[in-house]
């Protein structure tokens, strides 16, 4: 972003990579898949790079409002400094925080989740899954992220993205508004769970496996980890894979 601004240029959109997309080895592959799609389509986008900082979501959900606002207000200074208008992010937590919680602190942007962005590209015909259909006959089930679904009512965009793959979409028992959490939200990801009978991600993974799908599609870095761990817990990592929707689209395009 700094380079673009220095060159007097303005991007169409700012890609907010998020901490997981920047540092988590598994989710970096999602970042790359999404960037490959953006480059392939010829979207002029920018990232903040080292100027990006945690949105503060986990701090806020854990109760540390002070730390959240420190992060938020610093980020807003950076974003406003570059006169950012439109943001896309592959993380539902960043999405929710940037979209719903930054306006109260002076950060007003059009914020969309990468599932919505991909849906737009597909409906505009700018992204087409190649012939030869690597997904034909495969069963995919989509796991709703709480902060995308219930929190912001984005249920259809990721499903429409998956529908473009011409795969067999199968739904779990608890979906959309009734979707079951992966267990990571509310800063649970950053601590051990409280004592109980079972881990939430195992409960959810069992439900996903019961659909008979060979691919569990997710749209959130934390769901990605929780569901992948769940699949390992059930000893199914050889037969069942967890992918982000942008990875599936990138695969479909041979990127």
């Amino acid at each position: 972003m700094a380079d673009m601004t220095a060159a007097g240029d303005e991007p169409e959109i700012l890609f907010w990579v998020g901490c997981a997309g920047s540092f988590d080895d598994r989710y970096k592959r999602v970042t790359l898949a999404f960037v490959r799609i953006l480059n392939h389509v010829g979207i002029k986008f920018a990232v903040l790079g080292p100027e990006e900082s945690c949105t503060g979501d986990p701090a806020r959900r854990a109760g540390n409002e002070f730390l959240f606002q420190m992060q938020a207000i610093s980020n807003i200074q950076v974003l406003n400094g570059y006169n950012v208008k439109k943001i896309v992010t592959a993380c539902p937590h960043c999405f929710n925080t940037l979209k719903n919680e930054y306006p109260d602190l002076g950060g007003n942007y059009e914020v969309i989740h990468h599932s919505q962005f991909l849906q737009q590209l597909i409906s505009e015909g700018r992204v087409k899954v190649a012939d030869g259909q690597p997904f034909k006959g495969r069963k995919i089930t989509f796991h709703d992220s709480c902060y995308l679904g219930r929190a912001n009512k984005v249920y259809e965009a990721p499903r429409e993205v998956l529908a473009s793959l011409d795969a067999d979409l199968v739904e779990m028992k608890r979906v959309k508004a009734n979707g079951l959490c992966c267990g990571a939200g509310g800063a649970q990801y950053f601590k051990e769970p409280e004592p109980g009978r079972k881990d939430v991600n195992v409960e959810r993974t069992q439900e996903a496996l019961a659909t008979g799908a060979d691919t569990i599609a997710v749209a959130c870095p934390f769901c990605m980890t929780m569901m992948s761990d769940g699949v390992k817990n059930q000893n199914r990592e050889d037969s069942v894979k967890v992918y982000d929707i942008s990875e599936l689209i990138a695969q479909g395009q041979g990127l």
């Binding site: 945690c54 503060g56 730390l67 950053f190």
Partner: peptide
């Protein structure tokens, strides 16, 4: 620990903020 990482490393994990763009 997560709080202190967010505060000092700008991420919930202890990575160096300057490595944030290494994925590219």
């Amino acid at each position: 620990a997560m709080f202190s990482n967010v505060e000092n490393n700008q991420a919930p994990w202890k990575f160096s903020p300057s490595d944030r763009f290494n994925w590219a």
